[in-house]
Design a binder for these strands. Structure first.
Lengths: 210, 210
DNA sequence: ATAATAAGTCACTATTTGGTGACTTTGCAT
DNA sequence: ATGCAAAGTCACCAAATAGTGACTTATTAT
């Protein structure tokens, strides 16, 4: 005979914990960090909130656990590091900026976490920021700093502006329908314009250092 | 004889309304928009929350009233518009960017409102964004677009990135103690590096268009 | 099979925040 | 001065959210 569809829940602690973590991610993407209330998380996970206290100790610890578990850049950062670099990181920087732009544009969760980091002080959010900083530091210290010599700090500041701009424009897009300097970063055309400008500015920075 | 210090409150509706508006501004600066609860606002104003409903209709209307009342750029935008511009806005753009950077850096309230605009949909926040957009449009349409011709959109995108970067870095500074690309925008030295880079990039954009 | 333990539910209390009716106090027109 | 309308206070209820004790159900070792 066919198996009866079990009505009874399978019980598994690890699995359940994961469901809560997933619920946090889903809520974050769809409603933003302000919506991460215990009741909402439990409802979204389809489980009882009591378990949040039982397994994580409370909402904050669950949220921290979630933030630790997210591994940003994991797909965007690593494999590119094997390139031969003999142009002072010129190609690499352009590539990195545009890929990062696309990544942030398509990753609502990341946008929300960036925003969260600007809104709330929380250790695990700081850690994520530090981690991003460390990733970039590898590129900057080993490749562009030597190349730009006395202008190294200026180049760093420029990169800081370009990356920040990329972040902000993507957050702006998700929250507003308006244009920014007449550019609409929510439209494909606007996105292309911004990526073109990013590459263009990097080109100018490298050209001027020749 | 000396006047007795009056214990009794002076009663004045307009004055009281202003106290609530001031309280919103103060809370916004110090705690951020998430702290704008009716009870907190009333406590901060030193008045009863009932009056918020009586005079404004509720928290939201009070907050909208506040947002309408803030007049950003009032000191930073106008008088500069009289310059003679025969360099395609080169000097103007540099000046605008650095002044704006300083303005945002020193104006915590503005930072919070920017952040708020990224976090919450609210008509009056959109209006503020539109107002900023309109301000910039005057410069872009009349001065830089003609100068850059076919490259006008690219220049606009570049300006969008620079302004956004300026916004983000200032918000980042206020929320974190960390560096960004090794630059610390909270320190005077870091701020100078960013302003220098802003001017530098504008120079490059104009130089390349010659 | 069943007892022991862990997983999960539910109904409840506590706390915080929002909102209002009924009151007291003040300013002001007469 | 006095009476009344508006300003302002306070105690209260309502709604939303956080947190927990006592229970039921599933899993597992024997």
């Amino acid at each position: 005979m066919a198996e009866q569809p079990k009505k009874t829940h399978v019980r598994n602690k690890d699995n359940t914990k994961q469901q809560f973590l997933d619920a946090v991610g889903k809520l974050l993407r769809t409603k933003g960090f302000a919506a991460l209330k215990v009741n909402d998380i439990a409802t979204t996970a389809g489980l009882d909130k009591k378990l949040i206290y039982k397994y994580f100790g409370g909402r904050d610890q669950l949220v921290d656990q979630y933030l630790i578990s997210v591994d940003f850049w994991s797909n965007v950062k690593k494999e590119d590091a094997n390139f031969e670099i003999n142009d002072g990181g010129h190609y690499f920087a352009k590539q990195m900026l545009t890929e990062q732009f696309d990544y942030v544009a398509s990753n609502r969760e990341f946008q929300k976490i960036l925003l969260w980091g600007l809104s709330e002080k929380r250790k695990s959010l700081e850690n994520l920021a530090d981690q991003r900083e460390l990733n970039g530091e590898v590129l900057l210290k080993n490749i562009t700093d030597p190349f730009f010599g006395d202008n190294a700090e200026n180049f760093r500041a420029a990169m800081a502006i370009l990356i920040s701009g990329s972040y902000y424009l993507n957050m702006y897009t998700s929250s507003s329908n308006s244009t920014f300097c007449g550019i609409d970063p929510s439209k494909g055309k606007g996105k292309e314009a911004i990526k073109t400008a990013l590459k263009y500015i990097v080109d100018l920075l490298y050209k001027d250092n020749k």
